[in-house]
Design a protein around this nucleic acid. Structure first.
Length: 268
DNA sequence: ATGGTTGATGCTCAA
């Protein structure tokens, strides 16, 4: 079962690339973030034509998340269940092939003096409550998305990121609290020395200089983590004109009995 | 000290 997460930075601007990615990588599940569009204007028909179902939690201009899946989703939910926090469309969930999948777009937070940073910490604290309310640690749960947090120093190309709201001690502690529900970073074990990035700033030749950050993640409960057989970032997708500032993150779980994709076989 | 770019929107904000 191939699970993917990709912050597309506008699904309408990325429509052609997203359709090509679905054809090329054929994931069983693709979690999208930053749709920047309401559900009514989401390019649903073209995605359905490729054999995908779609759970869409849209918003005009900002945010917006979705879960695309080959199998039919059930037990769909939208938002974190808090009136203030759900002014932003940042979370949706669905059960697919028995896996409780969530697509999450954590707030960026601006800078540490900004109200946006308080919002980020509040949203992260609420996400932990959502996990506690909806699931047990023994359930097959997969939280995919743009976490806007780099957990380790070697998840950052530049030391200067350490002081930002993407990597300071406080957000890392907030992420640890989420992890302590019973989640595991299933990508990290395949890249024990770090230097794996999923986002590069559009500005100042961020990608060309490989000034990246690993802020997109797949966290799962232990029962699924034990089945994780490969992980990779599709760096090619960040190249050229019309790229999102994030590259897709792919994770293979050996749970459906299908063939393991050779491109994702990386020894731990 | 606040550049550099992309996207949606509408003459600016968010990332």
């Amino acid at each position: 079962m191939l699970l993917c997460s990709w912050n597309v930075n506008s699904i309408r601007a990325r429509e052609e690339r997203a359709l090509a990615f679905l054809k090329r990588s054929a994931p069983d599940v693709l979690c999208l973030q930053e749709l920047k569009v309401v559900e009514e204007k989401f390019p649903l028909e073209k995605i359905q034509a490729l054999g995908y179902h779609a759970v869409i939690h849209g918003q005009k201009t900002y945010n917006g998340v979705a879960i695309l899946s080959k199998s039919e989703p059930s037990d769909v939910f939208y938002g974190v269940g808090d009136e203030e926090l759900d002014a932003h469309s940042r979370l949706c969930g669905a059960t697919i092939d028995g896996v409780h999948v969530m697509s999450a777009y954590f707030p960026n937070g601006g800078d540490a003096t900004s109200p946006k940073y308080r919002f980020k910490l509040k949203w992260m604290a609420r996400l932990r409550e959502v996990l506690d309310e909806r699931f047990k640690p023994s359930d097959p749960v997969a939280l995919l998305g743009d976490y806007n947090v780099a957990p380790f120093d070697d998840d950052m190309a530049l030391d200067s990121f350490r002081r930002t709201v993407l990597a300071n001690d406080e957000v890392r502690a907030a992420l640890t609290h989420i992890r302590e529900f019973g989640l595991v970073d299933v990508v990290r074990p395949f890249f024990p020395h770090g230097q794996l990035y999923s986002w590069w700033d559009y500005r100042a030749l961020g990608f060309e200089r490989n000034h990246g950050l690993r802020i997109d993640h797949v966290y799962t409960t232990e029962i699924l983590a034990a089945r994780c057989v490969g992980a990779q970032v599709d760096r090619k997708e960040r190249e050229g004109r019309g790229a999102s500032d994030h590259a897709p993150l792919l994770v293979e779980l050996d749970i459906l009995g299908g063939a393991v994709r050779p491109s994702l076989q990386i020894s731990k």
